[in-house]
Design a protein around this nucleic acid. Structure first.
Lengths: 357, 357
DNA sequence: ATGAAAGCGCTAACAG
DNA sequence: CTGTTAGCGCTTTCAT
């Protein structure tokens, strides 16, 4: 330490000599010391009072809060964060390889619930969609002090996430637990979900069930595994021609359905790995004059609100996004307070509606 | 060299000693001065180099950037923001009187596009849902330096928004332009939208068209006005019994449809003020064994992605959320750089599908 | 083209 | 219980 400022000189270089007449009027933003002056205390006391420090008697605390309120004072976040060395901001990152804006209602709904869970916790939510350089971007968000931790939606970059975990980035991911997963994960029981959906169709008499959707990422893989498990249990062998591993975009779904028909593949049911996919598939079937459920039964996955209101109403596997959001926020808070990584698997439940009977 | 610090003289109690021993060891986050040291320059130069200041020769700039990168250094946002007195964060506020989490796909979709538009602009997005005390909350977000400006979705608190505008909060609102609106608004041409939807139904032979949805907030009011305008043009008088001003929740819609039937009101078409409402209405009609479009034609509003994939596919009014998002971000940037408030009205276009023919 | 110095507004030791 | 004091890590005049 060297020449720290000339001590006693509390008088700062006066930038604006005479106090503007109407102090309240306009320009210089009001700050803590102004409140302190008005309350006849020091800035430290105001700081303590405003943050609810119990060492300040309640009466004083209220009085200061009142004065601060009447002056329209708000604590400056940047300054407080800088001083405390921490933010109350959580980054929510949608990590999908898609170049399209986020549009799946399931993801969007999850974000909505996360926003609420975070707010209820006194946190703010910084929302970003990342498609390039996930590693650097996520790193930076935290180590620049922009936010204290990350809630990641999507496991497209599974290995990057593992690396970030090792690098000590506080983070919770929505997705599926894999054998080599080192980070905290919150997700539905996708294996059970796939199994339930498929068993339900088999139980209803279906013999040739199409699997429609992604199966390159962890969640899809497990849903597919559940599908295979159910088939085996019914003594059926998975048939390659029934597996349509495609993205869930409208065109890909239509193309897949079209292909099935062109190739003249016989099928009496479809298990789609998402409701959006299922609804699009029904739409495509209809345009080929195939009726759901009389000719082909369909089961989706997610239970988005819309699934109860399409025609026919969609049988699906429910994912509880409210629980999911709460769990993610809770796990992240645990990490932020130093606990070890922990994961949560939420139940997957079959919701029977008309598309499958 | 004026008063260099009196090293030996002013022995002020140097309490640096209480510092944790292993300062350099591992934890202490790397900062600008470390980069400076390694590069053999001052922190000021690093700051300038990293922010692309042209007074630093390009070669030096690159060298410093390289070193910073290799050390994993990131500029601390809190410190930079505090020093500069501004953030690069924009608050996105969903201001709805609803206590439910955000769930309308239209709103959620708009948020997705806003996220992208903001990111493209180098801004971060702070997402909040506000249902109580909007005035204080929005005020605080900006005046605490948490964010520099606001993008507000929803006009439920129209007067509060007017007040905030007057208070000088930089803000752009998604909604409708009203005569007494003082703030910047971006929105579709709701009057035209309502008019197009209704004319389309009338042109198709409908005589008794139900208006279904909110009409207490500005956008709904205008859609309703468009509906009335079209009716008048066709020489029809608005019939009170056909106006069902309700929220768009599933139960309210079902109840409204139920009431229409119970009251034995004759109707041959429905104009719903949102796609979600329209889809729910179709679902309710179906459960009463009324077919769409053969018995009742339906037109929605929004053109959410799902509307093209429900059965029957839904005729609707398109709202361009991509343009909307871009416009909102652009207008806000204008305000932030001191321009006056300006509003944008986006075209509303009829999308004809099967629910109305 | 670069460095020294001065804070941005707040919080937390550390005494009283 | 409350005030004094010393920075948090950065950007930016100002002066070379």
């Amino acid at each position: 330490m060297k020449k720290t400022a000339l001590q006693g000189k509390t008088t700062k270089p006066i930038k604006k000599s005479s106090q503007p007449l109407a102090a309240e009027s306009s320009n210089s933003r009001i700050q803590m010391v102004d409140v302190a002056r008005k309350a006849g205390v020091s800035a430290a006391t105001v700081s303590r009072a405003l943050s609810g420090n119990p060492s300040i008697p309640e009466s004083t605390r209220n009085r200061i809060a009142e004065i601060a309120g009447s002056m329209g004072y708000r604590v400056n976040h940047s300054a407080a964060n800088l001083r405390r060395g921490q933010t109350n901001v959580i980054g929510v990152v949608v990590l999908i390889s898609d170049t399209q804006p986020i549009s799946d209602p399931f993801i969007l709904g999850l974000i909505g619930y996360i926003a609420d869970a975070l707010n209820a916790n006194g946190n703010s939510m910084l929302l970003t969609r990342v498609s390039t350089e996930p590693r650097a971007t996520l790193q930076t968000m935290v180590s620049s002090g922009q936010c204290s931790g990350l809630l990641v939606i999507g496991q497209t970059y599974h290995q990057v996430l593992n690396e970030l975990e090792i690098a000590g980035i506080p983070m919770v991911v929505w997705g599926a637990q894999l054998p080599d997963t080192r980070y905290s994960v919150v997700g539905s029981n996708n294996l059970t979900g796939g199994y339930l959906a498929t068993s339900h169709l088999l139980g209803g008499g279906a013999k040739r069930i199409v699997y429609l959707g992604e199966s390159t990422f962890p969640e899809g893989k497990l849903r597919y595994a559940g599908y295979v498990k159910a088939l085996k249990q019914y003594g059926l062998k998975p048939d390659k021609s029934l597996h349509r591993h495609c993205l869930l975009s409208a065109t890909e779904i239509e193309e897949s359905i079209h292909q099935l028909l062109v190739e003249d593949v016989a099928f009496d049911a479809i298990f789609a790995a998402s409701d959006v996919g299922a609804i699009r598939a029904i739409s495509a079937l209809n345009s080929h004059n195939i009726k759901v459920p009389s000719q082909v039964k369909v089961v989706g996955f997610d239970n988005i609100p819309m699934s109860a209101h399409v025609q026919p109403t969609l049988t699906t596997i429910n994912q509880s996004i409210d629980l999911a959001a709460t769990a993610m926020v809770e796990l992240l808070n645990e990490k932020l307070t130093g606990a070890a990584s922990r994961s949560v698997v939420l139940p997957a439940v079959l919701i029977e509606r008309k598309s499958s009977r």
